[in-house]
Nucleic acid binder design. Sequence first.
DNA 1: TTATCTGTTATATAATTTGTATAACAGATA
DNA 2: TATCTGTTATACAAATTATATAACAGATAA
Lengths: 126, 126
Amino acid sequence: MVILLDFQSDRPIYVQLKEKIIEGIASGRLKLGDPLPSVRSLAKDIGINMHTVNKAYQLLKQDGFIQIHRQKGVVVNPDGMPPADEVYISQLEENLRPLISESICRGMSEADFLSHCRRLFQDIQK
Amino acid sequence: MVILLDFQSDRPIYVQLKEKIIEGIASGRLKLGDPLPSVRSLAKDIGINMHTVNKAYQLLKQDGFIQIHRQKGVVVNPDGMPPADEVYISQLEENLRPLISESICRGMSEADFLSHCRRLFQDIQK
DNA sequence: TTATCTGTTATATAATTTGTATAACAGATA
DNA sequence: TATCTGTTATACAAATTATATAACAGATAA
């Protein structure tokens, strides 16, 4: 699995890494139970610090996307993904709201915005 | 115009302020040419520093949402809003991608995601 | 004219976040 | 025994965020 990060981005590296792994799961390239690299090896591969990888892993573990076993290593949660519960939905809407507001200001129609979402949905799911 | 900010949020105050003003324009509560409070008065109203407001205003000005005249004050850009050009679209998609990826992981259907977007669209436009 | 308001700029400071650098520990494996 | 795992601790540098004062120049109002 190749992970490309944008070091010029204003988005923190550990956030990008977390998002890339979630996208990997969403796309099906990473399946339930699949192993992930150790914090040290992944850090070496990407060329970043071990703790930066660990931070991303801890967030993923905290949200239920992965499991971390003392010596077995890290795996995509074999018991399934966390649900789209109320807490997640309201957080999702808080994140969508400013994106939609600006799109409206810039004259994008609802249909146009939905088209972009549809295309991304298909693109991510491969 | 009342502006409520979440000081506990991980989102910087000046970003929240910028987003609130854009949402105000999107909703129609702020119209082209409408005046905005001075940096000092708005800062005093909200209870934050003048420079924090100024930072939000500078970003809004840089993107073309507002105009700032030396002594006249600040107004919503009377010449219209910035367009949804290629640069904006690609930035929008970069922001949408992680939201959609996580929603897919959590088992949300495309139709369900689009419903949330539609509802927010209607909600923002009043 | 004087006083006040505007955006703007310049400094300085504190707190938090981000990322790196080493080191060590305990458990499992080869 | 040596190596690999996640974990934890400590320290440090850099950038970001937010505040605090202060001053300037142009416009407006008293």
